[in-house]
């Protein structure tokens, strides 16, 4: 499982540098997997499964007690590295903690980091993108060059730089990941804003004598920002993977917090004798990322088809 996490970072970094500077960390990889997966499941079955999984994740986030009553940080040194059994359905780790419980309680951290980071990227990206779209040309140029500079770093590297500046930890990880994904939102929102500003209905509204502010609030923002929630849902998967990756190398929440990336990191040394400590958090992580991408893509399809 550790191999999976490390590979995904390398692949994604390479992909970013060589092919698609616009795509978020690991999103390319995720997209590839999802596309293959959805093409097998043309039917909305995939959507149902993703929806069902989402419900499980939400329960794990808000009321993990419903799924597992075992304390995820409770150590039992007499039950170290036990294989899955009736007592511990996903086994125990090197400190005798219940892996299943750690995975369930860890959903909260991974989701929090993913949502927080995506929120930061989306909000800052929207502000930058809209400002660049509606402001004077020199403002646009200045903002977009700044965004270009951000985008020219591989996002994982940018996140590492931010963490190096402000230190590791949960909040700082959220900030670092959030900053590193700003460019893709800023660019898309700017493009949408420009498109709306040049549209027939904004032109028509101008002939009615609307002020610039009204024009922006009433026509430009609602039409330009419709795509942001869709982007954010798709981006969430990338942010969660990014969070796990940074956590894996120790830049996230510190032990004994049951964050998925941290669990994976801890399992690394024991993989040969206790595969279950890596496999189960790995599966949870992968399914969460796929789910957010599947739901996001479905939403995107519906969004792009609206009115046609």
């Amino acid at each position: 499982m550790s191999a999976f996490a490390v590979d995904s970072i390398d692949d994604a970094t390479e992909a970013r540098v060589s092919v698609a500077p616009n795509l978020g960390l690991a999103r390319r990889l995720v997209t590839g997997v999802t596309q293959a997966w959805t093409s097998i499941n043309r039917a909305p079955l995939g959507l149902y499964l993703a929806g069902a999984y989402l419900v499980v994740v939400l329960v794990a986030v808000f009321v993990p007690q419903l799924i597992s009553q075992v304390d995820p940080t409770h150590q039992d040194l007499l039950q170290v590295n036990r294989a899955p059994s009736a007592a511990h359905i996903a086994g125990t780790d090197y400190l005798g903690r219940d892996v299943f419980s750690r995975v369930i309680y860890g959903a909260r951290y991974s989701l929090l980091i993913g949502l927080g980071a995506t929120g930061i990227s989306a909000i800052v990206g929207v502000i930058l993108g809209v400002s660049a779209g509606i402001a004077a040309k020199w403002v646009d140029t200045a903002l977009m060059r700044f965004v270009d500079i951000l985008a020219s770093f591989p996002s994982i590297l940018l996140a590492l730089v931010v963490i190096a500046l402000i230190g590791p930890g949960l909040t700082n990880l959220i900030i670092a990941l959030g900053v590193s994904h700003i460019p893709s939102y800023a660019r898309v929102v700017r493009a949408q804003t420009l498109q709306v500003i040049r549209s027939g209905y904004v032109e028509q509204a101008r002939t009615l004598g609307l002020t610039r502010l009204r024009l922006t609030v009433r026509h430009v923002l609602p039409n330009a920002l419709g795509v942001v929630p869709v982007l954010a849902t798709i981006g969430l998967g990338g942010a969660i993977i990014g969070a796990a990756a940074l956590s894996f190398i120790g830049m996230g929440p510190q032990p004994p917090t049951p964050e998925w990336g941290a669990i994976l990191s801890e399992s690394r040394s024991y993989l040969r004798i206790a595969w279950w400590t890596g496999i189960f958090p790995g599966i949870a992580l992968t399914l969460t990322v796929i789910t957010s991408t599947v739901l996001g893509r479905a939403w995107q399809t519906a969004y792009e088809r609206r009115g046609k």
Binding site: G200, Y201, E203, T207, G209
Partner: peptide, 18 residues
């Protein structure tokens, strides 16, 4: 501005889609 009004070729694109 109200005194002079434009009627466009493609009416649909001149309405806010929402």
């Amino acid at each position: 501005r109200r005194k002079i009004q434009l009627i466009a070729q493609d009416p649909l694109s001149s309405f806010d889609p929402r």
